[in-house]
Design a protein around this nucleic acid. Structure first.
Length: 230
DNA sequence: GTCCAGGGTTCGT
DNA sequence: ACGAACCATGGA
């Protein structure tokens, strides 16, 4: 069985699901806040917390830093893990204020900004890359459990590569397929969103053996990646 | 009632 | 370097 290319997988997903319009949010700060709040949390719960923050006047770095941790924790309660996430939000916002606001992040190059984000409390690789790609429009491919599962099922990777090893390999592969530099961020944006979208559509809950790419013939998206995948 | 979601940190081995 | 416990809500 031959594996599809990363680019053809993207085209298949895009053709099937269309534009995903990620990341929902009215501002770069809201995207960053959402990236922290969505850690191991269903998105609808995050939306409730974000709405509550707006209603409490807490959707600015200065306000988030200034408010009492206990208050912030109560406001973001629906997103779960509210105590640790309150601390993570304040850590992130304290850094943003120190840097001189989100606009000042433009002075970092991609690797420098990534390193800075990773040094913050509660910002790991996935959260950092969500912020880099969706809040800062940096060309970084987001790797998550769905991505590993899908690429592993398609025999593109083993799935147990180290985070950066997999990310850099994916980026290098797509760089060849994408001749127009300006489209890289747009494709990375759409690709990750499509993988999450596909994971929701997949029947892996109903059929445990069928995780993301649906090898089970009963799965509605069984033939999405061609007859060889059924 | 059980499972898990758009993870990360810390503390064991 | 890798695994497990921990954090905690809401929807299926």
């Amino acid at each position: 069985m031959t594996s599809p290319s990363l680019w053809s997988v993207y085209q298949t997903l895009y053709g099937h699901y269309g534009e995903q319009h990620w990341w929902p949010g009215e501002s770069a700060l809201e995207v960053m806040v959402g990236a922290v709040l969505t850690q191991n949390t269903a998105w609808p719960n995050v939306e409730k917390a974000i709405l509550a923050m707006k209603q409490e006047g807490l959707m600015s770095a200065e306000a988030i830093v200034s408010t009492a941790p206990q208050h912030l924790a109560q406001v973001i309660r629906p997103s779960g893990y509210f105590n640790i996430k309150a601390r993570r939000l304040q850590s992130l916002c304290q850094w943003l204020v120190y840097e001189g606001g989100i606009e000042a992040l433009a002075y970092y190059d991609d690797d420098g900004l990534r390193a800075a984000l990773l040094s913050l409390h509660g910002i790991g690789p996935e959260t950092a890359d969500d912020i880099l790609l969706y809040a800062c429009q940096r060309p970084v491919f987001v790797i998550d459990a769905y991505t590993r599962r899908l690429f592993s099922r398609l025999s593109l990777f083993t799935g147990d590569e180290a985070y950066d090893e997999l990310r850099l390999a994916v980026e290098a592969d797509l760089r060849v397929a994408l001749d127009k530099p300006g489209s890289i961020v747009a494709v990375y944006n759409e690709y990750h969103a499509l993988i999450v979208r596909h994971a929701k559509a997949a029947c892996y809950k109903k059929f445990p053996a069928c995780r993301v790419c649906c090898l089970n013939a009963v799965c509605p998206s069984a033939s999405l990646f061609g007859p060889n995948m059924v």
